[in-house]
Design a protein around this nucleic acid. Sequence first.
DNA 1: AGCTTACTTGGCTAAATTGCCAAGTAGGAG
DNA 2: CTCCTACTTGGCAATTTAGCCAAGTAAGCT
Lengths: 104, 104
Amino acid sequence: MDSKTKACYEVRATVFRSLAHPTRLFMVDELAKGERCVCELTEMIGADISTVSKHLSLLKQVGVVEDERRGTHVIYRLRIPCILQMFEGVEAVLQAAAREMEVA
Amino acid sequence: MDSKTKACYEVRATVFRSLAHPTRLFMVDELAKGERCVCELTEMIGADISTVSKHLSLLKQVGVVEDERRGTHVIYRLRIPCILQMFEGVEAVLQAAAREMEVA
DNA sequence: AGCTTACTTGGCTAAATTGCCAAGTAGGAG
DNA sequence: CTCCTACTTGGCAATTTAGCCAAGTAAGCT
């Protein structure tokens, strides 16, 4: 694997890594319904606001979400709605696993 | 977020985590072309065979790939071809990011 | 049986991730 | 300006992940 190809996979892995956490998956699901400010998400998640903020900035850095300041609030929204397409792939994996369970 | 919902996101996060590594992404891409034995993948990747084996067993555990012994060789194959659907989602994210770069 | 190839697993260290607290910034209200 | 709310960032400890080597297993060959 040459270094160019490797770099290509590194970038893609970064996108997967940004979604490889239950809290961040929840955020994406919730933002798919509409924009939310940090404190709304914090309340739903039940973690420290600093923790929530860090998860959001990770998603932002990767380019999954974007933010906008409105007065004292910062609202986040999904930047790429088609990220939900990836979620369907996950369901496919889980359903296949579930089917196999039944058979066994 | 109740514990049942949380558990649901944990499972999904596990699937993403299994793909959150350049080597494992390469493996999935390569297995999408056809089945491969561990030593073939090892040569392409250029890491220790034990490292490659561990990546493969992680993918197997999550249910992305399956293996089969053939003599001294163990061949791996994609168990869920529709996992490639997730890759398209990644491309969408990256392309959106690229477009934004141009604009800026 | 012994030898060899193909692979897995255990163990260890190095590096990355996570989550909380504390401290800092930003903007509205009085 | 001060206070307050909303949020971000730094820092630290705990957990997880990654990669190599060494040791173990599995199956074919002689």
